[in-house]
Design a protein around this nucleic acid. Structure first.
Length: 456
RNA sequence: GUGGCCAUAGUUCAAUGGUAGAACACUGGGUUGUGGUCCCAGACACGAGGGUUCAAUUCCCUCUGGCCACCCCA
């Protein structure tokens, strides 16, 4: 072994020793596709959460929560065993009691389960649910695509009428427009089982016509046998040219379904909600029937307009699901909105967030005596209803003023040895930098004079 | 799951086959009792493992992670 190699080894050892001293343990990192929401990020969440809460209340949707963990079977049966979500994206495992369980990959099944389990068909119908929470899908992460993400969901049970569909779309639309995000709603009707079987046949006939198959991409060739409806979804130019003259499901709707769809559109027209009829919109989950819709942003900066944008939200009607899950036949519809994606848009567009600046007081102290007295004064002022902050763990006045400044205090009270002796306290205006000595006993009176109307 | 690009302080970015620098942020000081400006100082990084080499943060491979596209969706 040469001297040089020895040197290298020694250097590495030294480095490791240093690392050991500095860290003493392995640094942990998040799981892939999981995110921490840090302090500054919360202003966005507060904004979005408040909008969701307010809107839901206005339209009489009641807050409901369901467990994050459910039986695996619930999703297999409702979402569909063959869907991507269930077949390859679910976090599932067998728990200590041997149950097959899953982290919920979407909200609707749990809500349907709750509706059935708690006998909500005995409540006045429709039952309108407002739901908010984390969902889990084991996908390859990308921007706007996390393995744990949050969704705002609204569901309406027990109302078969087109008004229900329209109201849901309205709330979703309001949610976005009030957050200043311009959206476009893509809407379609995929009819009921009967309409769909009929249509499936026609579609296959069309695609099997001479010469068409050759133009399709590899994926679409597979789709012909596996999932013909998905042929409509492809965005390969050559596939799109083939699909141009394809039969559209709207033309094959039964009378009931057609009438329902027309009514929904009429309501949307009435409300001036912009929508796009998209005969090619097909949703991935098994339980949808009749109305389906997806919500996309309309960008001003759409140089790459034909690039597939990820949806901000989507939903539709699922009239068969409650019965399938063991309940009484109950018509229902709902939607989900991806909150991380909404927040991304808000950030992208630099939409200003107004944070209500509160005029608060900072209480600074000096010396042991001062600190002790300030401790008590803080409580006194807090109980008197003032918004007040402190940094009692800091000793230097400079540091305390820095902190007051950073936090945006309107006034700082300074209590030190000298003031203690004189029975006074210093009141400093943080903006002008002027300060006055006031009688300690009159401090509440003086503060009231200055920050009237800014109390808790 | 498939393909492409990428990985350097807390953050945003440099430089380099001979082990790294700035800005902002952070800590301390100039100011022993006074913030915002200024000055000074300090702490902190080459994602992990292997290979080539006298020597790798730099070149190669694997892994991990990030971004983007597909797939799918929110």
């Amino acid at each position: 072994m040469s001297r040089k190699i020895n040197k290298k080894v020694i250097e590495k050892d030294l480095k490791k020793e240093k690392d050991f001293r500095v860290r003493r343990s392995e640094k942990y990192s998040r799981l892939r596709g999981m995110k921490d929401i840090l302090f500054d990020e919360y202003k966005y969440w507060n904004l979005v959460l408040k909008k969701a809460t307010d809107l839901s209340a206005t339209y009489s949707f009641s807050h409901i929560d369901t467990p994050i963990l459910e039986k695996l079977d619930l999703f297999e049966r409702s979402t569909g065993k063959e869907t991507d979500i269930v077949s390859k994206e679910m976090y599932n495992f067998i728990d200590k009691s041997g149950d097959r369980v899953a982290l919920r990959p979407e909200a609707t099944p749990g809500l349907v389960r709750a509706y059935v389990e708690h006998g909500m068909f005995n409540l006045p119908q429709p039952v309108k649910m407002f739901w908010l929470g984390p969902l889990f899908r084991h996908e390859k992460p990308q921007s706007g695509r996390l393995r744990q993400f949050n969704q705002y969901d609204l569901e309406m049970f027990g109302d078969p009428s087109p008004v229900a569909d329209a109201q849901l779309i309205l709330v979703a639309y309001n949610f976005f427009s009030e957050l200043q995000i311009d959206v476009q709603i893509q809407i379609n009707s995929i009819g009921c089982k009967e309409c769909r079987t009929e249509y499936g046949k026609k579609l296959l006939d069309y695609y099997k016509e001479r010469g068409k198959r050759a133009k399709l991409c590899v994926d679409c060739k597979k789709r012909i046998t596996k999932n013909p409806m998905r042929l409509l979804d492809c965005k390969e130019p050559s596939c799109q040219s083939v699909r141009e003259d394809a039969p559209q499901i709207v033309d094959f709707l039964c009378d009931g379904c057609r009438e329902h769809f027309i009514k929904v559109l009429e309501y949307l027209d009435e409300l001036d909600i912009p929508y796009n009829l998209n005969p090619f919109l097909v949703r991935g989950l098994d339980y949808y029937n009749r109305t389906v819709f997806e919500i996309f942003t309309v960008g001003e900066e759409e140089a790459d307009a034909d690039k597939r944008q990820s949806a901000l939200g989507g939903g539709g009607r699922y009239d068969e699901l409650v019965e399938l899950m063991g309940g009484r036949p109950t018509p229902a519809c709902g939607f989900g909105i991806g909150l991380e994606r909404v927040i991304n848009k808000i950030k992208e567009k630099n939409i200003p967030i107004k944070e209500d600046k509160e005029n608060f007081i900072f209480l600074a102290q000096l010396g042991d005596q001062g600190k002790r007295k300030a401790f008590a004064l803080f409580e006194e002022l807090r109980k008197a209803g003032f918004k007040i902050r402190q940094a009692f763990t800091k000793d230097s006045l400079k540091t305390q003023l820095e902190e007051a400044d950073r936090a945006g205090a309107k006034y700082t009270l300074i209590l030190g040895q000298k003031e203690l002796l004189d029975g006074t306290i210093i009141l400093r205006d943080m903006e002008s930098g002027t300060q006055e000595v006031v009688d300690y006993k009159k401090i509440i009176f003086e503060l009231n004079k200055r920050i009237e109307g800014n109390k808790n």
